[in-house]
Design a protein around this nucleic acid. Sequence first.
DNA 1: TATTGTTATACTCTATAACTATA
DNA 2: TATAGTTATAGAGTATAACAATA
Lengths: 143, 143
Amino acid sequence: MTTRKALDAAVTDLMQAIGLLVRRARVVGASQELSWTESFVIGRLAKDGPATTAELARAEGVKPQSMGTTIAVLEDMGLVERTPHPTDGRQVNIALTAKGAAMRKHSKDAKLAWLAEAVARLDEQERDTLFKAGEIINRLVKH
Amino acid sequence: MTTRKALDAAVTDLMQAIGLLVRRARVVGASQELSWTESFVIGRLAKDGPATTAELARAEGVKPQSMGTTIAVLEDMGLVERTPHPTDGRQVNIALTAKGAAMRKHSKDAKLAWLAEAVARLDEQERDTLFKAGEIINRLVKH
DNA sequence: TATTGTTATACTCTATAACTATA
DNA sequence: TATAGTTATAGAGTATAACAATA
């Protein structure tokens, strides 16, 4: 049953479903102030504390230059702030501001809220499958 | 265990994993000739036969105008062809060409090939979880 | 020289808006 | 009028390239 062909078909279906999910979430959150990467940066800073541009870029799977752009946007919004690294003059520490922490707490992200609501309507077992799949994907993308 | 807060956290983790997967796949297939949507259009045409622009747009979760652009690209590559609808002069039928069918058969898509390979290395149970999650997501996005 | 980050520019995918042709 | 599709333009997100500052 696990012929190469069947596997390819199943993987294609999986990615199509994921593609639909991502597009759907984008539409739902179109009027929202935070993009995916922006949300995740806020979440990461809230969970693990301040980090450098390079660290955040690695965590999100984007180039440091792209992360720099994202951080500039968040800084303009007053959600994060840059402070110089204590010993290494090249590095810059990115930290949540009080406003950023508050936004995180109030979970203002429409995209995630929409998905959370949909997931909440699933039964226990399906939710479990979904979250287990998330863990598996996490392992996959890290080689 | 299913407090709202725990659910939000789990959903956030899930979407972050999915975000990483999508970006990772993009990097892997950067030198490739087909985008996600292009691949899926080819796949859909191969599986279900010819379709109109509007049908394809609905299936992929994009606007008809965006799908029109995608189809134009595929047509330039010689992978699909437009033929007038037999009875309704407004509609256009999109069908795979021989070249498109061949490309589909040889599974030239580096992004999917990379993922298929990674999935093949999982054990039976994990693969199953992943594909079940795909079905659940499919239901979620369709309301 | 290697590393961290910034600035400038370009590309990909999708959206909105305005239009044509057919029903 | 309503529907299918096309064309033009814009926006979001990320990439590459070139650069400055520091280690």
